[in-house]
Design a protein around this nucleic acid. Structure first.
Lengths: 143, 143
DNA sequence: TTTATTTCGGATAAAAATGTCTTAAATAAG
DNA sequence: CTTATTTAAGACATTTTTATCCGAAATAAA
């Protein structure tokens, strides 16, 4: 559905939403450990999210990553867009390039319904919302 | 969403549904050309589908692949199951292994709704149905 | 029976996704 | 200013997915 990279990215931002602030930055080591993702790979993802202003980073001692209040309201769609792009949400279920309303593949209508619901779900789900669903004690580790 | 392999596989079986019969078998070369997929790779996929009784094959001259009447009623879910497995339809959207009703990840409920609709769509869509949606002149090429 | 045609099976290759390492740049604190 | 700590960036490595190739087995027709 979405890539492993996007899953890591979402886990990371949700963890940041729940535990960081502009005055409390978290470093990659801790984030990666808490979401059970490879550290160096998580670093790459966070760098990319930072470049695309989904998270904020600060170098140096006491540096790390955090989410601004605005960034808390970013949608999961924006996160996935940075990592995977939006193709999943817009392209043909059978991999046909010409598929469209006018020239639909045999699965077009049913598949489009799925895609659209997926798109709307990711669009309507903010990082803040997910962090709110993280009931105390819950973890984001794969294990 | 589903793999490129599964997309090829679905295109192949839909093409077979529309153009083959037990007395009219199609060879890999033709199938691959008509669905715009790599020939050798398509052969592998068809072999796998044959092993799992989603399609029927016959060796030798005038041999090839076709769908029996029963096989026309196989669902897309059965096709995808053979190629990708059922993981997409049952596992956590954030990649967590322990995620469940009792121990839900923060996206569990919304994501489960998506997964379930996806599962039901693939389950309720038969090869025969898709072939019926292939209006005359329509093609299954990616182009 | 021979030949041509086709799928089958296994080995191999290429491309894409995932993951690692190393050095540079920034910055806070002593 | 120096040192320690952290992210940034690019090169490299591994794994998975996608794709190719070749010889063997089956079979229909001449």
């Amino acid at each position: 559905m979405i890539s492993k990279s996007s899953q890591y990215a979402i886990r990371a931002v949700v963890y940041l939403a729940a535990h960081s602030s502009s005055s409390r930055r978290l470093n990659v080591r801790q984030i990666a450990a808490e979401i059970d993702a490879p550290e160096a790979f998580t670093a790459k993802l966070l760098q990319l999210l930072n470049k695309n202003r989904i998270v904020t980073s600060l170098k140096g001692p006491y540096g790390g990553f955090f989410l601004s209040d605005q960034q808390l309201d970013k949608s999961l769609l924006e996160v996935v867009e940075v990592i995977d792009g939006l193709d999943v949400f817009y392209s043909c279920g059978l991999g046909l390039l010409q598929c469209s309303e006018l020239n639909p593949c045999p699965m077009h209508h049913t598949y489009k319904a799925l895609r659209t619901q997926m798109l709307e779900t990711f669009q309507n789900t903010s990082i803040r919302l997910l962090a709110g669903n993280l009931h105390s004690g819950a973890i984001l580790k794969a294990i």
